[in-house]
């Protein structure tokens, strides 16, 4: 991963929405080679990013301590 990629912290929805935008631009606009290549690489990265999210994610759970011991809301990794 490049630095740019590792810094990103997109949600799946954000990444997928951007991927669709990239596709639309690449399909619709006429542009020079550099821009096409940049867009294509961005799309490639977003595809990989989304797939990684789906394939590597582990469900996380927090429990609100609302009804049990006290009214105080605590958070805890499940």
């Amino acid at each position: 991963m490049t630095q740019l990629e590792s810094k990103e912290n997109l949600s799946y929805e954000q990444a997928f929405t951007e991927l669709e935008q990239v596709l639309n631009r690449l399909e619709g606009e006429s542009m020079n080679l550099e821009d096409s290549l940049l867009l294509f690489e961005r799309g490639q990265f977003l595809t990989r990013y989304c797939a990684d999210l789906l394939e590597k994610a582990q469900l996380r759970m927090q429990q609100l301590h609302v009804n049990l011991s006290s009214d105080e809301t605590e958070e805890e990794e499940a």
Binding site: M61, Q62, L68
Partner: peptide, 13 residues
Amino acid sequence: QNRYPLVEVILAP
């Protein structure tokens, strides 16, 4: 977990 493990579950027991 099987369908969409990206989510975080907030359990209010």
